[in-house]
Simulated scan of single mutants.
Amino acid sequence: MVKIGYTMMTEQRGPRELVEDAVRAERAGFDFSVTSDHYFPWLDSQGHSPYAWSVLGAAAQATTRIPLMTYVTCPTFRYHPAVVAQKAATVQLLSGGRFRLGLGSGENLNEHVVGRGWPAAAVRHEMLVEAVEIIRALFRGGYVSYHGRHFDVDSARLWDLPDTPPPIGLAVSGPRSCELAGRLADVVIAVEPKAELLGAFARHGGAGKPAVGQLPVSYDPDRATAVARAHEQFRWFGGGWRVNAELPGTAGFAGASRFVRAEDVAEAIPCGDEVEDFVDAVRAFADAGFGEVALVQIGGESQPAFLDWSQEVLLPALRRL
């Protein structure tokens, strides 16, 4: 049976509301939750971007059962990997072992703020490898010194370590990232239901490891309202991560998506309240080999209604997959 997750989307909700939504998601019966980690929203219309790690700490205390996960954190620009290791270990302790650390090579949108430029994807992958090596070394305990091409660590130690370190997930979108994830990750993360991604991950050492996908949806009893909301806030989604990773700000995403029509968005994202449309979209991930799918309900103010509908209608239907 596919596990169904709930996404705390920091780009469209304030910090207190995100924690309240996590509590509702746990009550509704979602199997796990994930949290985006951004400095900017993709579009001005989304309107939020609180600090994800504070939200995670609060959610860890406000919930009792639901697993938590970053989806995803970039450990190479805004954050030094030694600091990411400390944050992840702390959330694992606060949550009582319910945390997974999802990592990726980042987006210019969020990482440019520290003024270090935005190198080519090959360099970003090199940096990600070093970051994972540093984080795993710190999770093992003791003092760590590391001198790499991109990062240095001088006698670092995590003084509060959980008995079980957080599993590390890596986001993939192509052959190179699948190869890295197969070697380095405990979990593979993707936003497209492509079996070839999981096949490449398996060939490089990831066979049998969990695969987590993510699916945007726009629930509303009025389909036209759902489509309009998805177009207003999520029309950037169809650009693909090779494009989206390079754009530096909300103006860039607005410009890149200015010719995307509402009907284009409705073809790619389940909109309305026809439950079979949502089930079919999740089935695509299940058929590709994903054992877990995190849903993103588009629109901050629509979260309570979506969570109620999920508990009563959507989750029971998805359990039959």
Rank of each mutant, 00 (worst) to 15 (best):
140 R>M: 02
124 R>W: 00
117 G>M: 06
117 G>C: 12
132 V>Y: 13
60 A>Y: 07
74 C>V: 08
133 E>F: 02
101 L>W: 04
158 L>G: 04
127 M>G: 02
141 G>V: 12
155 S>I: 02
104 G>N: 05
69 M>S: 12
130 E>I: 04
143 Y>L: 14
110 N>L: 08
118 W>C: 10
69 M>Q: 05
61 Q>C: 14
77 F>D: 06
117 G>S: 06
92 Q>S: 05
66 I>C: 05
100 R>S: 10
116 R>D: 04
118 W>R: 15
47 G>E: 06
129 V>L: 15
83 V>D: 05
140 R>G: 04
71 Y>G: 06
109 L>G: 08
80 H>D: 03
140 R>P: 13
61 Q>T: 15
57 G>A: 13
159 W>H: 12
159 W>E: 13
124 R>T: 01
102 G>E: 01
101 L>K: 05
83 V>S: 06
157 R>M: 13
49 S>I: 07
61 Q>A: 15
150 H>D: 00
125 H>S: 11
149 R>L: 04
92 Q>V: 07
117 G>E: 04
113 V>N: 13
49 S>L: 07
119 P>E: 01
63 T>P: 07
47 G>M: 01
58 A>N: 11
67 P>T: 00
47 G>P: 15
139 F>T: 00
90 T>M: 15
97 G>Y: 03
145 S>H: 13
71 Y>I: 11
114 V>F: 01
109 L>D: 05
54 S>K: 10
109 L>F: 02
130 E>L: 09
97 G>K: 09
56 L>D: 09
150 H>Q: 01
75 P>Q: 04
134 I>W: 11
155 S>P: 13
87 K>S: 09
95 S>E: 09
140 R>T: 10
120 A>W: 00
126 E>K: 15
142 G>A: 09
55 V>K: 05
136 R>W: 03
144 V>P: 14
63 T>E: 05
56 L>N: 09
122 A>M: 07
73 T>N: 09
65 R>Y: 14
141 G>L: 10
108 N>Y: 01
67 P>N: 00
101 L>D: 00
105 S>I: 08
116 R>P: 12
64 T>A: 05
70 T>Q: 02
99 F>G: 03
117 G>P: 15
140 R>W: 02
124 R>Y: 00
106 G>M: 07
91 V>K: 05
141 G>M: 10
70 T>C: 03
154 D>A: 05
63 T>G: 04
135 I>G: 00
108 N>A: 12
74 C>Q: 03
121 A>S: 14
47 G>N: 10
68 L>Q: 11
107 E>L: 11
